[in-house]
């Protein structure tokens, strides 16, 4: 569906052939929309019309309103910098796939401004938030700029950028402190903690979220023979695209707990470091961002279950 030609050409060609449709669609343009905004939103509406089979050109209906509403959500997110509940964001990022918007405006949210005003804005957190907004590349998985992924330049090479570890390091320094305090208040690291809860609350107190990826064990290829159990799940935890840990469990929550425990183990050292390391992903060697402690590793890393730095080439190659 995502053609090489810009979507705009296709849309105007299509509308040229259907003048009635064009006229009808134009009634949805709001007074304050600029050409650029409207062209993008129009494409969104037209592309997604099929998914709303009850929408008929020229006939008002509640499903049409829903489509319009989602188109506004998408446009508000891309052009105004609004964000919506996760379920809504997921939906529009899916629906907006393939629409290219050039030169997307950059905005600061309330949260970011307040954060800047209150704490004695350290260069660290500032640089951090700038990186968050400006560079859309490695950050998709943290769920924030989901709808804008389409604006990402396609030319970027596969894998994390060489400066990525340096960009992420300040955040993980803060996270390290948060975890340390949290563990102290929880009575120290041990087997009887809710590891996921600790990790999650620490990450959220640093204004970020965790990403968990679950894969049934049976779907993982290349495991040593004899260890291939049919049951069970594997969970991989990342934060800001940086790999934290992997765990296995009977069900997803057990896997998640184990992965969190592994992740917290990294925080037991004297510091944590973000590094680019090579590891297996879908049977290939890739470069990944990992969070490591100081200890030398005796064994290799478990294979990655997700890979947030992927672009089309790699996907084409692997499929």
């Amino acid at each position: 569906m995502a053609g090489e030609r810009s979507g705009e050409d296709i849309v105007s060609e299509y509308l040229g052939q259907n003048p009635q449709l064009a006229e009808w669609v134009d009634t949805f343009r709001t007074y304050c929309e600029s050409n650029k905004q409207w062209v993008a939103r129009r494409e969104f509406i037209l592309r997604n019309m099929e998914a709303f089979p009850t929408v008929e050109p020229g006939v008002p209906s509640s499903s049409l309103d829903r489509l319009l509403s989602l188109s506004m959500v998408w446009a508000n997110h891309v052009f105004l910098g609004c964000s919506y509940p996760q379920a809504v964001m997921d939906k529009i990022s899916e629906m907006g796939e393939g629409i290219v918007v050039e030169d997307v405006p950059v905005h600061k949210t309330m949260k970011e401004i307040m954060a800047r005003g209150k704490r004695s804005a350290t260069a660290e957190s500032d640089a951090d938030s700038c990186a968050k907004r400006a560079k859309l590349g490695p950050n998709e998985l943290d769920g924030r700029p989901a709808g804008r992924t389409n604006a990402r330049p396609v030319t970027q090479k596969s894998g994390p950028l060489p400066q990525a570890p340096a960009e992420h390091q300040p955040f993980f320094n803060r996270l390290y402190k948060a975890v340390a305090w949290k563990l102290v208040s929880a009575g120290g690291f041990g087997p009887n903690l809710d590891h996921f809860e600790i990790l999650r609350s620490c990450v959220e107190s640093c204004k970020q979220t965790l990403t968990c990826v679950f894969v049934p064990l049976k779907d993982i290829t290349g495991l040593p023979a004899g260890r291939t159990q049919k049951e069970g799940h594997v969970c991989e935890i990342r934060c800001q695209t940086v790999y934290l840990g992997t765990g296995y469990g009977r069900d997803e929550s057990a896997a998640k707990a184990m992965a969190s425990k592994e992740a917290l183990k990294v925080f037991q050292g004297r510091k944590v470091t973000v590094k680019i390391c090579r590891r297996r992903y879908k049977g290939k060697d890739v470069e990944d961002l990992m969070l490591l402690d100081e200890q030398p590793r005796s064994q290799g890393f478990p294979p990655a279950l997700s890979y947030p730095f992927q672009d089309e080439q790699l996907e084409d190659g692997s499929s």
Binding site: D65, M72, L80, Y84
Partner: peptide, 14 residues
Amino acid sequence: SSIIDFYPDDFAID
């Protein structure tokens, strides 16, 4: 909802 776009949970401040 057909009016979900009115209710962002975070928004930009210029």
